[in-house]
């Protein structure tokens, strides 16, 4: 027994180490990663940041409009993906849907996750035109791939015996859902949804670059035209929204433990 303990796994540790080292060496060996450029980067970065100061607050009205549009895209996109996940999540759950349904649904969700958001956004812009609508659709599509998977896992984690107890007491199917299943999964669902909303907000910042609405359009315009003072104002607006969101997130999660 002790012999087995002594020899077991030792080679696996080495193998893992060698694989990681090989991956890093391979990635860094490309001739175009010139570390020497880092030396000159410092002063340039300083100059760049210098040009961002002082932030040009005169553009605040349009920045505010942009960031609020991004927030709206994130909210509606999250709402859309929650609605889609309420259907696809149960269908993907091992415990309540048969194999011949949950396997294909899982595959579909994996495919949805694997397509980059920016690509979907470009497709949607092509389909429905410029503005926030393609952004909302893109976020809905992309986020559902993850959120429905999370919902399915929350359903699978539900302990069946309390539900059996309600059945035994004479509960109807809806009563079992409401008082046996829902209380067990609600905190997980809430946590996952808020997490996804935060991701949606961060990811929707870039949607404007391809014309799918929101603050991204301003980032692109200001950077392309070297108006770094205005870009700084955008950065401030984004920071405010993200920090506020994290603060709210912390409070909500403390409330629903």
């Amino acid at each position: 027994m002790s012999d087995r303990l002594r020899h077991d796994r030792s080679y696996r540790g080495w193998l893992t180490g060698i694989l990681i080292a090989a991956a890093i060496l391979w990635a860094g060996s490309g001739s175009d990663v010139e570390l020497s450029r880092l030396v000159e980067a410092g002063p340039r970065l300083a100059a760049f940041l210098g040009r961002m100061f002082p932030p040009d607050l005169s553009v605040w009205p349009e920045v505010q409009k942009g960031i609020l549009e991004t927030l709206r895209i994130a909210i509606l996109g999250t709402f859309g993906s929650v609605a889609a996940s309420c259907i696809l999540g149960p269908l993907a759950a091992d415990t309540i849907s048969p194999k011949w349904i949950n396997r294909p649904v899982r595959l579909l969700l994996a495919l949805m996750r694997s397509i980059p958001l920016i690509l979907i956004a470009m497709l949607m812009v092509g389909a429905v035109g410029l503005g926030p609508l393609p952004g909302i659709l893109a976020i809905t599509f992309h986020a559902t791939g993850m959120l429905a998977k999370f919902y399915a896992e929350a359903i699978e984690d539900v302990n069946q015996t309390p539900v059996d107890a309600l059945e035994s007491a004479g509960a109807t199917l809806l009563q079992k859902l409401r008082y046996g299943i829902w209380p067990q999964m609600a905190p997980t669902i809430l946590r996952d949804t808020i997490f996804r909303f935060e991701l949606n907000l961060r990811e929707s910042l870039v949607l404007g670059v391809v014309g799918a609405g929101g603050i991204g359009f301003l980032i692109q315009t200001y950077v392309r035209s070297f108006q770094y003072e205005k870009t700084a104002t955008v950065a401030i607006a984004i920071a405010i929204v993200i920090l506020a969101l994290e603060w709210i997130n912390t409070i909500v999660r403390r409330m629903f433990r």
Partner: peptide, 26 residues
């Protein structure tokens, strides 16, 4: 077989679900 995150009273009330109105109780 209790709902762990719910209160004692809530769990005991679950025993009433066979008697309550199926809609109002929701």
């Amino acid at each position: 077989a209790l709902v762990e995150r719910a209160s004692v009273a809530r769990n005991v009330m679950n025993g009433r679900l066979g008697h309550t109105g199926p809609v109002a109780s929701l």
